[in-house]
Design a protein around this nucleic acid. Structure first.
Length: 653
DNA sequence: CTAGGGTTAG
């Protein structure tokens, strides 16, 4: 088409570059720009550069943008305000805020756009404090903010959850007659919602004469995150034109509030409504819901639906798919996804490493970690949590120590409480209790409850009463209501004959009505989730389940199984240690139900909210042998794959 | 003919 323009002048070239820079194919701007620069009698001018820089920003092409910046300097356009403003935006988008700021300070006469670009850059880079600081500076320089400034500042307030300053900004807007356009109203709405003031949000929302998809989505998100699902649903129902983003806000809020079943049922409703199609956001949320539930059949159906709909896998989706497959007990399928995708960011790698960690495949996890570095992907804090977790579950103590020591000096990742917890867990599990204690004492940050919890867990495994008491007292200082710690402590007192302490503790627990988080196991059969609480009898097939359990026990006993109720340190109340109670553990009910209803050729997949109990672990091993079944049990920390009388954890857990 | 903004995701 361009070839047919008889005598293109520079204006024509610029128009074309501009058109492409805001089109779906900004890359074409580069093509035209190169032709202009090398195959035409013209030189790019002050109008040309902002457009190509915009294209570079939209494509997040850091190197290209840098090269263009070089050309700007060479052709002596570096003092052009428009070009500088474009460059600020470009560098900010690419995450190089230092360079953006560098361009910013070099501008002699900054206009409102310069300030806005820099403030927005800081907000989008997560430097909210810096953004607000710069806004103050702007005020001092007597540059009048406009509605774009206010959007950025409100966004910073929203992310900082600073309602007080947010309110001040709103009144400033009113007093100074700043134009309230739709975007600014939406930014205000979001600030109120994020800062938890739904009343303010609601009254603004009702006053807004123009609303769009962002307004509706923001309100739905606000209600849903507060758990006011009815209110959220009624906003959703009132949206004039159905759009997927509003559904997504609702689905993701359910999924992130520990209500994965509800998230899936909204998804089901969405499919029935047929007005709109799920998109990438939807799939990420519903896959996460499946991962939480261990609902593999549903997850597989969703994966199939994605393929059918022609959804391209981005890194978010890849991560969610891998997470779903690993958490549902299908490591092979997760690996297949991992190997077939073409781009892998730090989250994709980290999730795959976490998958290996969960299965106790420490070596594979570490292999993947080194391949990740060969691929030049920089590990982050999450990666290290997963790597250390892998070392811990596989007993790779030397490797764990090494990676921990390399974190800050080699990778620039400052160890956080999670990493210290992993280390204590790893050392403790391996029986290096003294080293674990020493490690805690040398921690540069205050050991959190999780650190003491990890030490306590190790004391339980290695039956160290004295150290357990020490860990317990620290844990209870931080979490006086930690039920597990209290029960354990009372058992320690009982063992050591401190009966006064025992009765005092028990009384405290009775009075404050502290309850153990109930054990709950779920199993998916034909796309339906069946939940079992310990000792419960509400399942429709309850009778069959209990007679199956009796049969299992009889068969196991004839095989020489003796229930184990003699741990020195038990985490359960005395009454629960009865054999009867052991038999009613939620994971057992789920296994019995699985034996009844899952095809013998299929593995039985179970998800438990707590750690699997030691006796149930032995029982599951025996069942896998005597009934010739594969059982995949995911507990709070890892996977147990029972097969032929053994468990993949090699009894190291 | 030029630059900057708000919602839903791991």
């Amino acid at each position: 088409m361009f070839d047919q323009i008889p005598q293109p002048n520079l204006y024509t070239w610029n128009t074309l570059i501009r058109a492409y820079s805001s089109s779906a194919e900004p890359i074409q701007s580069f093509m035209i720009f190169l032709q202009l620069a090398y195959n035409s009698p013209y030189f790019p001018n002050e109008f040309t550069f902002p457009f190509v820089i915009k294209a570079a920003a939209r494509l997040v092409q850091f190197r290209v943008g840098q090269a263009i910046h070089g050309m700007v300097i060479k052709s002596s356009f570096e003092d052009d305000l428009f070009i500088s403003n474009s460059l600020i935006h470009f560098y900010a988008i690419c995450g190089d805020l230092a360079m953006a700021y560098c361009v910013f300070v070099m501008i002699g006469k900054k206009d409102v756009v310069s300030w806005n670009s820099m403030i927005s850059g800081f907000v989008q880079g997560g430097f909210f404090e810096k953004a607000i600081e710069l806004y103050r500076e702007m005020e001092m320089e007597n540059v009048k903010p406009d509605e774009v400034t206010m959007v950025a500042v409100l966004s910073a307030c929203a992310k900082k959850r600073d309602l007080e300053f947010g309110r001040w900004v709103c009144s400033y807007i009113e007093k100074n007659g700043i134009k309230m356009d739709l975007t600014l109203s939406n930014a205000m709405l979001d600030m109120y919602v994020k800062c938890g003031s739904l009343e303010d949000a609601k009254s603004l929302f009702d006053k807004m004469e123009e609303k769009d998809i962002v307004s509706w989505t923001t309100m739905i998100d606000g209600y849903a995150k507060l758990g006011e699902f009815d209110a959220a649903m009624s906003v959703l129902a009132a949206v004039p034109i159905q759009q997927i983003a509003t559904w997504n806000a609702l689905i993701s809020a359910y999924e992130q509030n520990g209500k994965p079943n509800e998230a899936l049922s909204i998804f089901h409703e969405l499919q029935l409504s047929k007005n709109v199609n799920p998109d990438e956001f939807t799939f990420v949320s519903v896959l996460s819901a499946c991962a939480q539930l261990g609902a593999m059949d549903i997850g597989v159906q969703i994966h199939a639906k994605m393929k059918k709909q022609g959804i391209k896998l981005n890194c978010y989706l890849t991560t969610s798919l891998i997470d779903m497959y690993t958490k549902c007990g299908n490591l092979d399928k997760a690996l297949e996804v991992f190997h077939t995708v073409k781009s892998r960011d730090v989250f994709v790698w980290s999730t795959m490493i976490a998958g290996f960690a969960m299965y106790g495949c420490g070596r594979d996890a570490l292999d993947l970690f080194s391949r990740m570095q060969e691929a030049k992907v920089k590990p982050n804090a999450v990666t290290f949590t997963n790597v250390l977790c892998a070392c811990s579950h596989s007993g790779l103590v030397d490797e764990g120590r090494m990676f921990f020591n390399q974190m800050e000096p080699v990778y620039g990742v400052v160890p956080g409480v999670k990493h210290y917890t992993c280390m204590v867990d790893m050392l403790g599990r391996a029986g290096l209790l003294d080293e674990a204690v020493e490690f805690i004492e040398k921690m540069p940050i205050v050991p959190g409850a999780s650190v003491w919890g990890a030490l306590l867990g190790a004391c339980k495994i290695h039956e160290n009463v004295e150290l357990a008491e020490y860990a317990c007292s620290h844990l209870l200082e931080l979490e006086p209501e930690n039920h597990g710690a209290l029960v354990l402590l009372s058992n320690i007192y009982a063992k050591t004959g401190k009966w006064d302490n025992v009765s005092e503790l028990r009384k405290h627990m009775r009075v404050s009505g502290l309850k153990k988080e109930p054990g709950c196991s779920s199993i998916e059969v034909n796309g339906e989730i069946h939940k079992f609480l310990a000792g419960e009898s509400s399942h429709p097939l309850c009778k069959e389940i209990y007679s199956k359990l009796d049969e299992i026990v009889a068969r196991l006993k004839s095989f020489g199984y003796v229930p184990n109720r003699s741990h020195l340190l038990q985490l359960v109340e005395e009454e629960d240690v009865q054999e009867q109670a052991l038999n009613l553990h939620s994971e057992r009910l789920a296994i019995a139900y699985g034996l009844i209803s899952v095809e013998p050729s299929q593995p039985i997949r179970i998800v438990k909210n707590l750690r699997v109990c030691g006796d149930c672990h032995s029982v599951a091993k025996l069942i896998s042998k005597l009934y010739n079944r594969e059982i995949l049990l995911r507990d709070r920390y890892r996977f147990h794959h029972f097969s032929g009388g053994n468990c993949s954890c090699m009894d190291y857990w």
